[in-house]
């Protein structure tokens, strides 16, 4: 592919988020002085922009209003402006023990998931990048990425079959090794969250692996050769060349990973619904929000919107911290 021609916007984007905001404001001031140019442009962007505004932008804006109203789907008198209740939802949330417990579970889940996936995907990516046989490397890439393309629900159910206490292969193997009474992995509140983490790692690490791998392949060979001339061994090359140059990928992966906090589909597929697993030990915040809005009682969408806005704010804070500490603006 030919090297793409750069536009002004690409240069601004490369300078980071603050530059984008600044350029946006500058553009806002001068836009009236610009010529109309090719009017077909509006026609060409119209389908995408209209769909974006209707189905993406509007729900976000509407969600903000919902978060401050006692909106119950099954009670028409609370619809629209009538349900406005100020900060009542927020006060209720602060006192809602189930919510805080579900948030705690979500964090625990993320803390279990992130380090393993990060370490494992980087490890596999580095190893694949070292394989010199091109066909072998391609096969490893395909196998690592395959779980990622599977529907999340099916990926989880496949593991549920593996965990099955009666027919599952996992306990058969454990019994062969000599474990007398292997646990009922998904059935016991003690093990359920851990049992849920493994399939999630399995279904996502391939994505991260390939992102790291693309990053590694993009590193200039000459840098390694220079390091080799300087007498760096393999470990030093990894530590002083590969890792620092993979920083943008790390940023991206950490941001992607912080989205796991909600982990709605995983839990709902593994436990066949919004029960949250044995003794609600896997009731993550995302499932609790879903249940409040769509399953329980009058379908309390207002309160669910409040909680989900709160989760969104937490997510934004995590993202900001990641960007700050990684000191790379663009992934």
């Amino acid at each position: 592919m030919a090297e793409p021609r750069m536009q002004k916007v690409d240069q601004v984007r490369a300078q980071g988020k603050a530059a984008v905001v600044k350029a946006f404001v500058g553009e806002l001031k001068t836009v009236r002085q610009q010529g109309w140019g090719n009017l077909w442009g509006y026609f060409f962007i119209a389908p995408a922009i209209i769909m974006y505004i209707v189905f993406q932008a509007w729900p976000i804006i509407r969600g903000l209003f919902m978060a401050f109203s006692d909106y119950r789907w099954l009670l028409p008198e609370t619809h629209g402006l009538a349900g406005f209740n100020g900060l009542d939802n927020w006060i209720e949330m602060i006192h809602d023990k189930t919510f805080w417990r579900s948030l705690g579970i979500a964090f625990k889940f993320t803390l279990l998931f992130m380090p393993f996936t990060l370490f494992f995907s980087l490890f596999v990516a580095v190893m694949i990048s070292k394989v010199q046989h091109p066909v072998a490397a391609a096969v490893y890439r395909v196998i690592a990425y395959m779980p990622v393309v599977l529907p999340t629900s099916v990926a989880m159910l496949v593991w549920a079959k593996l965990y099955d206490p009666k027919f599952g292969y996992l306990n058969v193997m454990l019994q062969k090794i000599g474990v007398k009474n292997p646990p009922n992995w998904l059935g016991s509140p003690k093990t359920a969250l851990y049992a849920m983490t493994i399939p999630t790692i399995w279904s996502r690490f391939g994505y991260w692996t390939l992102l790291f791998l693309v990053g590694i392949y993009n590193i200039n060979r000459e840098i390694y050769e220079a390091a080799l001339v300087d007498g760096a061994n393999g470990w030093q090359q990894f530590w002083y060349v590969t890792l620092p140059l993979l920083k943008p990928v790390f940023t991206l992966v950490l941001v992607l990973g912080s989205g796991v906090v909600s982990a709605t589909v995983e839990s709902m597929a593994l436990f066949k619904g919004t029960s949250g697993g044995p003794a609600e030990s896997c009731l993550t915040a995302g499932v609790y929000v879903y249940r409040t809005a769509f399953i329980h009682g009058d379908m309390r969408m207002g309160y669910a919107a409040t909680m989900s806005l709160f989760l969104g704010i937490i997510n934004m804070i995590i993202t900001a911290i990641v960007f700050k500490t990684m000191r790379t603006e663009r992934a």
Binding site: P59, I60, Y71, A305, L311, G312, N315
Partner: peptide
């Protein structure tokens, strides 16, 4: 973030 999106959708 797409918070509250599903309910509004």
């Amino acid at each position: 973030p797409r918070a509250g999106g599903l309910m509004a959708l």
